[in-house]
Every structure is written in structure tokens, then in C-alpha cells.
């Protein structure tokens, strides 16, 4: 691509794949073995109804807590990505503020049951109806659709790891101070992702499908921000006093 920097060697790509995959597995919140043991148990009807009967603000707070838990694992993932901690602190913050929730949505496909259209949440597998009390059915449907479509690609753990790093290291985020540094890191990550896909004999279209997912992720995250501001307009005190501080810092 006419890039002046020296080409990345195969060995360097293998090394990058190894580091990012290891970082992913060390910080993935739910190991595959744990997921298998859970035997995909879903909520019983009365449990579903108890979520549906929760006051809107209580369900919002519960979801904010769960999102924040997942985001903390993503922060740990970022810290272990080769080169991320070499970026200036401003850019580390910019990338995580913009990309942590996107990586949470990517990781969601690891805990998603496509047959039953259900995601692991609060101890069991929950369908979209569990989230009715939030008052965001359109966004919830889109999030479930995204998880289902990402699941259909059947990405391996190292492919997921590389795609997560690729999403996080987006050089087009606003407020970046050292854009070129991030661009170099993202290009290397993309080469590593291509390398893994080739090594795993994936058909050609997968990389393009993954690129299209990036735009969907952006839309999901901006819709989340819109829903939050609409919610906060009605319940400002709840957000201020009951929402996790990190969540307010990132999305407030």
C-alpha cells in the first residue's frame, strides 16, 4: 500500500498474533470451558418476568454494572496489546473511551447462543425480552442481530483476539494526538488478522465481512450513547448516584 515503513516479517506477524491471542485469553472474562459447563441454561419464564417487571431505572443500573464489568476486562486486554502502552496516555484514553464498548460487543458473540437468540447475562442466557424494562427494544434487537451475525462467521479465539485489537486500534478516532503511531499499530494488527485468517484457511470474504462489522459497531455505540442521554434526562439523580463511576466517565 505504498507505505514507506519496512515490511512486517512473517515472524513478526506470528509474534503479534501470539501476544494478542494470549492477551485475549487472559482477559476474556469467560473461558470457553466455563461456557461449555454452563450448558447454555436460559432463564425460566418467571425469571424473565421478574426482569421485565423491574423498574426501568433498576434494569438500566444493572446493565450499566454488567457493561462496566466487561469494559474493565477490555482495558486489561488493551494494556497487554504490544505497542498500546507505548502510545501517549491521551491516545490510550481516547482509544478505550471510543472502543471499549465496541470490543464488548465483539466479545459478546463468545457468550451468545444463536439457536435460541440468547446472551449470557447475570448468570444465565437471556433473550431480548429480558431487557424489555430498559425501553430500548430497537437497540437491543440490533445488538442481538449483530451478535448473531458475528457468531455466524464462527471466528476462532485468535481471530476474535485480532479483530478485537483491530477494532480498538482505530486510527480515525477524533482527539488522537499521535495518529500516525496508531495507524502503524492498526496496520500491523490488520496484517496479523489477515495472516491468521489465511493460516486458518478462511475463505476470502471474511476480512471484508469483518470490516463491515466495524461500521455496525460504531452505530451500536452511538445509539447506546443516545439512549443513555435520553434516560439521564428523565433520571439524572439515578445516573449520578447509582451508576458505576467508570461508566459515567466513559459515556457521561
Amino acid at each position: 500500500n505504498g507505505d514507506a515503513s519496512p515490511p512486517v516479517s512473517m515472524a513478526e506477524l506470528d509474534h503479534l498474533v501470539q501476544i494478542i491471542s494470549k492477551s485475549h485469553l487472559e482477559t476474556c472474562q469467560y473461558l470457553r470451558e466455563e461456557l461449555q459447563q454452563m450448558s447454555w441454561q436460559s432463564f425460566l419464564q418467571d425469571e424473565v418476568e421478574s426482569y421485565q417487571n423491574k423498574p426501568r431505572e433498576a434494569m438500566w443500573q444493572l446493565c450499566a454494572v454488567k457493561i462496566t464489568e466487561a469494559i474493565q476486562y477490555v482495558v486489561e486486554f488493551a494494556k497487554r496489546i504490544d505497542g498500546f502502552m507505548d502510545l501517549c496516555q491521551n491516545d490510550q484514553i481516547v482509544l478505550l473511551k471510543a472502543g471499549s464498548l465496541e470490543v464488548v460487543f465483539v466479545r459478546m458473540c463468545r457468550v451468545f447462543d444463536s439457536q435460541n437468540n440468547a446472551v449470557y447475562f447475570d448468570g444465565k442466557f437471556a433473550g431480548p425480552d429480558v431487557f424489555r424494562a430498559l425501553g430500548c427494544d430497537d437497540l437491543i434487537t440490533s445488538v442481538f442481530d449483530f451478535a448473531k451475525s458475528l457468531c455466524s462467521l464462527h471466528l476462532t479465539e485468535d481471530e476474535l483476539a485480532l479483530f478485537s485489537a483491530f477494532v480498538l486500534l482505530s486510527a480515525d478516532r477524533s482527539w488522537l494526538q499521535e495518529k500516525l503511531q496508531v495507524e502503524k499499530l492498526q496496520q500491523k494488527t490488520q496484517l496479523a488478522l489477515q495472516h491468521v485468517l489465511q493460516k486458518n484457511h478462511r475463505e476470502d470474504g471474511v476480512l471484508n465481512k469483518l470490516r463491515c462489522k466495524v461500521a455496525v459497531l460504531r452505530s451500536l455505540c452511538s445509539r447506546h450513547t443516545e439512549k443513555l442521554s435520553a434516560f439521564r434526562a428523565v433520571y439524572p439523580d439515578i445516573v449520578r448516584t447509582h451508576f458505576p463511576p467508570l461508566y459515567k466517565e466513559l459515556f457521561g
Binding site: Q72, V75, N90, I93, V94, L96, K97, E249, L250
Partner: peptide, 17 residues
């Protein structure tokens, strides 16, 4: 930006457990 993101900044400072 660091001022407005003290928690995130602190998480980044913590050693990778």
C-alpha cells in the same frame, strides 16, 4: 482528557495483574 478520565487513567496505570 486525563483530568476528565481519572478512573480510566488509574486503571491504565495499575500494573497488569
Amino acid at each position: 482528557l486525563k483530568e476528565k478520565h481519572k478512573i480510566l487513567h488509574q486503571l491504565l496505570q495499575n500494573s497488569t495483574s
